[in-house]
Amino acid sequence: MSEAIDRTIARRRQVIDTFKQELIRRLNLPFLPEDLHEDVSLLGSGLGLDSLDALEIVLCVETCFNIKIPDDNISVLRSINTVVDFVIVQQDAKGGRA
């Protein structure tokens, strides 16, 4: 695999692992990290989290990555992958990784 692809995967994997572990811990989810597919829906269907859980996810992202999800941007919380995309974009905008 090319170095660029390796770097992309390694960075994404790190954000995913951190987020999943904190999500499971905060929400006491009965899963191992590898049981959570990154595209699984966080709210409603899928994990079926409610609005209080959504607040925990926002706090989770803030704690883990020092990144704030705006109140009016609930669409970020569609899945683990969409949260991870948001984190990576914000990290890039800050000019580095948290």
Partner: peptide, 11 residues
């Protein structure tokens, strides 16, 4: 592989 673990009670 379909990522349906959320439909299961692992315990």
């Amino acid at each position: 592989p379909l990522g349906l673990q959320w439909m299961m009670d692992m315990e």
